[in-house]
Design a protein around this nucleic acid. Structure first.
Lengths: 202, 202
DNA sequence: TCGATACGCAACGGTCGCGTTTCATAATAT
DNA sequence: ATATTATGAAACGCGACCGTTGCGTATCGA
């Protein structure tokens, strides 16, 4: 067998699909979603136009919008902040600061909105988002908490699930219902300090 | 002047507008929103059809969709739970239980979603919702907290804004990301007890 | 070179909702 | 009675997208 085959699957004959087009499509989709469109308002034609691509090229890859959006969300790399500070408090502050700074970017904000509000109508999309964006962060957060419980910075009987919900939920609540600029500049620290008051031993 | 006039404004000649139709329209709009449609997916035709009403009847009263939705939201009466329990803890638990029970109803849930996610695209709608549904609740909650600070159940230097965000945000976070049935049955109590640990004096 | 496949583009017929108009009918004031 | 306004129904022309098809061109393997 003389055929050299770098990959396992046999390359099909003909012109290969353009990877560039694929990127452009996904980027365009995220871009439009980031402007506040819901999933159902997101039109294939708009994506094609913005990506500089024919509709055919889209339909050849995804049979429906949801699949496209799912893949688009999957392409988002979760920027996990490195959490190896001196103390639990430092790590938590760092974490919440990252969360807050992300919530200011319109694009992040809109995509977050989509995930939160369209979980009923587009469960697969919401599930994917949860997998991509929420879970890894929660895992990092959980690691911090458990480290704290191990070294005595936090109560040994702390309900970690609850503690994480307090931190994330409080930040979300405040960033949701306040305009970005009338939030206290030290919001993250204040949340952490207030929460830690109940998390510390005794 | 023989004209009897119950109201100040002179009743215009001709057939009066049907109050029943108006109610039906608003109810239909809320109904559709409660099924998960966003504001932009909400179509006048669908509202008219469900309300059993001609489109004319809608356009005669509202010149655009947003106005209609704003009025529809305004018609929602905020069911303020009476909070005059024996203790701050009791009141907070009652409050959060109400919040949770509401978050289970699909309709409430969807309308909440709309308010939260479409604040960029439909600011007037979001603002109205905040006025109708959030503010009164927050006021009731604030009253409880201040009562607690006055009688010593809570720290005198408690950051009330932060404390309220902790309670509401935590409940929202947990009800958002969990399916309704794998939440602990005593969720409200657990949130309150965890939070109060940091709210109590010393 | 040749067959196969992908590309961007334009056009297709079809659906949906828009906001407006027309119509016959109903409800009210004088 | 008559004038006036509202009502539900239907139809209008318009534009946005749908998902598909055909076109000429580009890019691959054989």
């Amino acid at each position: 067998m003389t055929m050299q085959q770098t990959e396992g699957a046999a390359r099909p004959a003909g012109r290969p699909r353009s990877e560039k087009a694929e990127k452009a499509i996904i980027e365009a989709a995220l871009d439009i979603l980031g402007e506040g469109s819901g999933v159902s308002e997101l039109s294939i034609e708009a994506i094609a136009a913005r990506a500089g691509v024919g509709k055919t090229t889209i339909y050849r890859r995804w049979s429906n919008k949801e699949d496209l959006v799912v893949d688009a969300l999957a392409s988002l790399k979760p920027p996990i902040p490195p959490l190896k500070g001196a103390s639990v408090r430092d790590d938590l502050v760092t974490y919440l600061q990252v969360v807050q700074s992300e919530s200011i970017h319109v694009r992040t904000r809109c995509i977050m909105n989509i995930a939160m509000s369209q979980s009923d109508r587009h469960p697969r999309v919401a599930e994917r988002f949860h997998e991509i964006a929420i879970k890894p962060r929660q895992a990092a957060l959980r690691a911090v908490m458990e480290r704290g419980m191990a070294n005595g910075e936090l109560r040994a009987d702390l309900d970690v699930e609850m503690a994480m919900a307090i931190l994330s939920g409080t930040m979300m609540w405040r960033t949701k219902w306040s305009s970005d600029d009338d939030l206290p500049p030290d919001l993250a620290e204040r949340i952490v300090d207030e929460a830690l008051r109940g998390f510390r031993p005794r």
